[in-house]
Design a protein around this nucleic acid. Structure first.
Length: 941
RNA sequence: GCCUUGGUGGCGGAAUUGGUAGACGCGCUGGAUUCAAAAUCCAGUUCUUUCGGGAGUGUGGGUUCGAUUCCCACCCAAGGUACCA
């Protein structure tokens, strides 16, 4: 290998070239972006990675390559481009590694980051590394804590529809109590006057304010994972078990920090119309927020002062309500159940509490419930309505109670049928003997007193009016979205800047941030079940010294305990895109000038799996920061692209169950075999297994007999998600070593459309690699000769296509275009600098190393990165003749070269006179001849 | 179930507003070069055929002079979601 390279110095030596330019870019800080420029700004952002111990596989860089192409293209187009990168470096794997080995997560994280950086550098990305952020860096999480404090000190005013300072709310309370306040807040707030407020104790005031703050402490029913000793968010649970680790999860009440994201539900919905994000992603956010319009109806209970509020989307069907169902967890269940029914109800409640979410989910067919013995009173007919409980009603949605209208809702219908509850029909001319009638559009109400004859819409507004009159209801919009639990019982996360006085949370003043993570002996929860920070011995706040001090000094006078929870994974990623604008600023989250200049992200590329997590929380924080005047834009990213997943091609060997033989793929018939994953690196591109290497890799097969076909062992292939456990992971390092980063970049783009998921198959990489070699060869002798018309045509059609492709994120077709271009120029024996210079610039976003080298060879001393993108000129593509496809009944039968200035009837005359036309027609007379000049001729008949 | 995306050669995929289906690449076949190999280059490669053609973009209909593209119904695959009142 070494000898060959030396012998052929003129060859494309990618190893040397790529190392050279990576060094050049680093030394010259080629991609450093300044926060001011005469050029227009453009911000290209990638989702920053969690630096895992496994390093990058070929699936990771897909989005990074695409964004890098776009960033480099925009530099050629004269933009001041911000293209930063960093690490989402808090997270569970490092913590679990710490639990196992005792090694501090910071050390593991540092080592992983180092490896990631090497791999990223190797791929030639044009990141501005001077702006790197790490969420676990105190200099960074200082500002995560700071945003948290801002949220704590804010409430949501529904009148102005924005977040406002909590101090304004306090002034209102002092002036006139809370009667006129319309806030996004807890539901259980009692009314109080100004004088009430004045008389409340300090602690009571604090308790009331917590119900208004945008981040607040509350007892929440949470998903507790005993194995991890932590609470999980809904989106961290997959199939009822923890996403990481697969441990069981149970429901439990805990005091937790929550984020009042529900205050922003409507704005998060409305904002979707203003951003250019993929429709499926918008749809999933819309569904997640889950807006539904309806009414809140209050039902009285017979012989009781309790009332049951119910949310319904069909208030028009209120006269069809024949029973009511409460969630088994509903707080009124205990209070209203009659003595006769107590045993039944208790048994049912206990049974559902035992059932995991997973059971309840898997078992949708079984209808279950129990009668409480109590009756509600219909608001209009005053008739008694039996109150049932059933696990099809969820405690967490609406009010945890439904007004059951069996004729109009299939679940209510099934429940009524099962328990023999009457099903009154309130629809005109509809048969409900088989199933419920839920078609709103065709609803005509009957048997409903003042609603008779009305449509869904008319009846709804009428009944809401009547409910308001009698004070038993109102129109209401309900959201499925819940407030986000923000506490985690973990070590490796941001500490809350919070200490407790009389059990009430107090914020540490901004100037003492960051509150740094304390050292702990063990990273597990404490023996008393407290979070890992409970193991810290120096974790108390001295309000006089403004310092973290020894726990033994806690006296609840000047030294107080600190919060033991840490923030969740999404805390650090919810504002990182803004921090890049001014990432080293120690005085502010970012300067007004920096964010005033960069404004927002112009292009964000990342995976669709973050649709309802990171991307929703980030939009929420951004809207909050916008309300506070800290961010100038209400949406942080104008355009977003989801890159598809790269799947791996797994390889299988087939073990015979009945013997110690392993059969090649073609020999399986009639045998009882089990497929075993083989590491894909042991298989060549012809699916042939290196048997000796396999035996070494899996020693248990050392003695096995491998039965070959035609002297080879052929593996089976299957497309699966790329994953370490399936041994189908392809490491980019090996490909860089063998073919170079430029080849890898081109190949990842060449695989197919960016947004679709596609299989990885290393076999095809030789194609793009030989393209680069051909490109290289084209520059071996460059001269100053005039470019021929043919040369210019090739170049300009390439410019046009590549420019269109990049603008449309269709990177795969650009690679084909380059191949065609180089093939044509090679055939044309083109040596002209006038062609080859612009071509180098065109290629440079895709294959930057070779482009820099060729640029230098062409005699330039500056980097190609800011060379002006070639201008497309239509004149080089003008043709004066066209090879017309001549089709018969829509099928192309032959082609005919004709001048483009020929008129319609002239074309027809020439075509009809042609001998092939006569042969095709075979004596028939055509019914019709369609001529589209410049396009096609179609003869019908 | 619902929402979303997709279905085109042996494979990845291309086809701008309806106008030459299969660009480009892989693989395969044959050839050149070579002592041989690698590398490189040339030719061919949707299926079928009586070599004139004929059929063909998941299936079945429809609109049109003309449909991979538009409309209707259905099938399959991937991803998301989950009893949301």
């Amino acid at each position: 290998m070494q000898l060959e390279n030396e012998a052929k110095t003129m060859d494309y030596n990618f190893r040397e070239i790529e190392a050279k330019w990576q060094k050049y870019w680093a030394t010259n800080q080629t991609f450093r972006a300044l926060n001011q420029s005469d050029k227009p700004k453009f911000y290209v952002l990638d989702m920053f990675p969690y630096p895992s111990g496994a390093g990058l596989h070929v699936g990771h860089p897909l989005g990074y390559i695409a964004s890098d192409i776009y960033a480099r293209y925009k530099r050629h187009k004269g933009f001041n481009v911000l293209h930063p990168m960093g690490y989402d470096s808090f997270g569970l794997p490092a913590e679990q590694y710490a639990i196992q080995t005792g090694q501090h997560p910071a050390i593991t994280t540092e080592a992983n980051i180092k490896r990631y950086r090497e791999q990223l550098d190797q791929l030639g990305f044009s990141f501005d590394w001077s702006r790197e952020v790490r969420t676990s860096d105190p200099g960074y999480y200082k500002w995560t804590q700071w945003v948290f404090i801002q949220l704590f000190n804010s409430w949501y005013n529904k009148v102005t529809d924005k977040a406002e300072p909590i101090s304004d709310l306090i002034s209102s309370f002092e002036r006139s109590g809370n009667k006129q306040i319309e806030a996004a807040c807890d539901e259980d707030i009692l009314e109080f006057s100004a004088s009430d407020w004045e008389q409340f104790s300090h602690k009571t005031k604090q308790e009331i304010l917590l119900k208004y703050r945008l981040t607040y402490l509350a007892d929440t029913e949470v998903n507790w994972c005993p194995a991890l000793g932590t609470v999980l968010a809904n989106d961290e649970i997959v199939n009822g078990v923890s996403e990481r680790g697969g441990h069981p999860v149970i429901r439990k009440k805990m005091t937790q920090w929550s984020m009042r994201i529900t205050a922003y539900a409507q704005r998060l919905l409305d904002g979707l119309d203003t951003i250019d994000w993929p429709q499926p992603l918008k749809d999933s956010q819309t569904n997640w927020i889950g807006r539904s319009e309806g009414a809140l109806v209050e039902f009285g209970i017979h012989d009781s002062e309790y009332k049951i509020p119910v949310f319904t989307t069909r208030p028009d069907t209120i006269f069809g309500a024949s029973f009511m169902t409460l969630a088994p967890e509903h707080e009124l269940v205990r209070k209203i159940t009659t003595t006769e029914q107590k045993e039944t109800i208790d048994a049912y409640v206990e049974a559902t509490a035992k059932r995991s979410e997973r059971d309840r989910m898997a078992d949708v067919k079984t209808i279950s419930g129990a009668f409480t013995g109590a009756y509600a009173e219909h608001p209009f007919t005053k008739e008694p309505i039996p109150i049932w409980i059933g696990d099809y009603v969820l405690a967490g949605y609406g009010t945890g109670a439904v007004m059951a209208v069996p004729c109009g809702d299939q679940r209510d219908y099934d429940f009524a049928k099962h328990f023999g509850i009457p099903i009154p029909n309130i629809f005109d001319g509809v048969d409900i003997s088989e199933e419920a009638f839920a078609d709103k559009a065709n609803t005509v109400i009957a048997n409903s007193d003042f609603l008779n004859g009305l449509s869904f819409k008319e009846a709804t507004s009428k009944v809401i009016g009547e409910l308001e009159k009698i004070g038993q209801g109102e129109g209401k919009i309900n959201y499925r979205l819940r407030d986000a639990v923000f506490s985690r019982q973990r070590y490796w996360g941001e500490p809350f800047p919070v200490y407790y006085v009389e059990g009430m949370p107090q914020m540490i003043a901004d100037e003492h941030l960051p509150l740094e993570l304390p050292e702990v002996e063990k990273y597990l929860p404490t023996e008393t079940g407290e979070p890992p920070l409970g193991n810290a011995t120096t974790w108390a706040w001295d309000v006089e010294k403004c310092l973290v001090v020894d726990n033994q000094k806690i006296d609840h006078k000047t030294v107080f305990p600190l919060e033991l929870n840490t923030m969740p994974g999404w805390a650090g990623s919810s504002q990182y895109f803004n921090r890049y604008m001014d990432s080293t600023n120690a005085e502010a989250i970012y300067s007004k000038e920096a964010i005033g200049y960069w404004q927002d992200v112009d292009l964000y590329i990342g995976g669709s799996e973050h649709a309802t997590g990171h991307l929703l929380y980030s939009r929420f924080w951004q809207k909050f920061l916008f309300d506070k005047g800290i961010a100038p834009k209400e949406e942080f990213a104008k355009k977003l692209i989801n890159q598809g997943m790269i799947t791996g091609t797994s390889a299988f060997v087939y073990k015979d169950m009945d013997s110690n033989r392993v059969y090649s793929k073609g020999l399986l018939e009639g045998r009882n075999i089990i497929p075993i994953h083989a590491d894909v690196s042991l298989v060549n591109s012809s699916d042939e297994l290196d048997v000796e290497a396999f035996k070494q890799w899996l020693p248990e097969y050392k003695e096995a007999e491998f039965v070959l076909e035609d002297g080879r062992y052929i593996v089976g292939r299957e497309i699966e998600k790329m994953s370490k456990s399936k041994y189908n992971v392809v490491n980019p390092d090996l490909i860089c070593e063998e073919y170079g980063a430029d080849s890898l970049r081109l190949y990842e783009m060449f695989l197919g459309p960016l947004e679709q998921s596609k299989p990885w198959n290393t076999a095809g990489i030789s194609g793009v690699h030989s393209f680069l070699k051909k490109l290289w060869k084209l520059y071996t002798s460059v001269d100053d000769s005039e470019a021929s018309a043919e040369n210019l045509k090739t170049l300009h059609k390439t410019i046009k296509k590549v420019e269109e492709d990049i603008e449309n994120f269709s990177f795969n077709t650009s690679v084909s275009t380059f191949m065609i271009c180089v093939n044509e120029l090679t055939a044309q024996k083109c040596h002209s600098r006038r062609i080859l210079e612009p071509l180098a610039i065109l290629v440079s976003p895709y294959a930057p190393h070779i482009a820099e080298e060729l640029w230098e060879k062409l005699g330039h001393s500056q980097s190609i990165s800011e060379a002006v993108f070639p201008k497309f000129e239509e004149k080089h593509l003008v043709e004066n003749s066209k090879e017309y496809p001549i089709s018969f009944n829509g099928k192309m039968r032959f082609k005919l070269e004709l001048p483009l200035d020929l008129a319609k009837d002239e074309i027809e005359a020439v075509v009809m006179a042609h001998e092939k036309t006569r042969a095709q027609l075979d004596g028939r007379t055509p019914k019709k001849v369609i001529v589209v000049p410049g396009k096609i001729v179609n003869i019908v008949g």
